[in-house]
Amino acid sequence: MSLIQAFKSLAGKFKNGTASDNAIATATPVLVASDPVLLALLSDTLKQASLTFEQTEAHLLTSEGLVFAVQRIESVVLGEDRVRTCTKIHAWHPTYFPQGIFEFQHALAATEEAAFVDGFKQWINMDFQVLRDATLDVPVNCTVIEMNTAADETNATAHFRQVILGPVAHLASQAGPKKKEEHPFCPCCLFTESIAAFHDVLQSDQLVGVRLFASRDNQGILAADCRVNGEDFQAAIAPLVQYAEAWPQRGLEFRKQYIVIRSVSRSLDTASKMAMPLPE
């Protein structure tokens, strides 16, 4: 059985009732092939993290129905023992995102291989956790923000938009002020501080993966990056920069997160859920 056939078989399984009732109809996916060297490195890194999967010649498959491929974007020697790499990991699911989504992994290490592996470790610790939760009715690894959308002329059925908040990578080169922050940093901050930029995304039914990043260096220079399904999302840059500007002085600092926004027809009833209104 080819991977495409296996993908369609999984789609039928999920469509026949083993997936959440928010499942969407599937389309034939456009599955890109992996770089074989990087696929082997990603496979080894997943095994070292005690994660189970099946491997084909060009893809990795998980028990949740996720399919992954990895490609090389660049490898740049910056100096002695300094190599910067960038890879792209594609993800598909036969029900929730058959069209596929992708995200980039940036890393810096002494060797090319070490940099690739470091990028994969970051992806496992952050993105992979969210993608797995995005295939479950009740996420088990991540906190969820939930917003209610009422039925209207274009959408006959009321539903809920869920924001699955992945782990946050947070670095600060100095200790913060002893005075307690008015609102200490938490996993919802990057999203809630830029939520107005996602108005149209939240009003839709589309499942999207979102990368959020904000930083301030030792000289106070601010930077931000946001991508939706791997593509630049400029609307969130200004609010993320404004958010970083308000951080207490801690020298070089950055905060980075991957989240998934999806629609469901049933509300969660768990302690990990946070409710909030949709932005107007």
Score class of each variant (00 low, 15 high):
S2I: 05
L3M: 11
S9K: 12
A11C: 04
T26M: 01
T28Q: 14
P29K: 03
P36K: 04
L39Y: 05
L42F: 15
S43Q: 13
D44V: 07
T45H: 04
T52D: 12
E64F: 02
F68W: 09
F68D: 08
Q71W: 03
E74H: 09
V77Q: 15
T87N: 13
I89T: 13
W92E: 08
T95D: 09
Y96N: 02
Q99C: 06
F102C: 07
H106W: 08
L108Q: 10
F116I: 06
N125Q: 15
N125R: 15
F128S: 08
D133I: 02
D137N: 10
V138H: 08
V138Q: 11
V138T: 14
A156W: 03
A156M: 05
A158G: 13
H159Y: 10
F160V: 05
F160P: 06
Q162C: 04
I164V: 11
A169S: 06
A169V: 07
K178Y: 10
K179F: 04
H183C: 08
P187W: 03
F191H: 07
T192F: 05
E193F: 05
E193W: 06
Q203E: 11
F213K: 00
G220L: 02
I221F: 13
L222H: 06
V228C: 03
N229Y: 04
G230S: 08
A235N: 06
P239D: 09
Q242N: 15
A246R: 15
Q249R: 12
G251N: 02
E253I: 12
E253R: 14
F254G: 10
R262H: 00
S263P: 07
S265A: 09
S265M: 01
A271C: 02
S272L: 05
S272Y: 01
L278D: 06
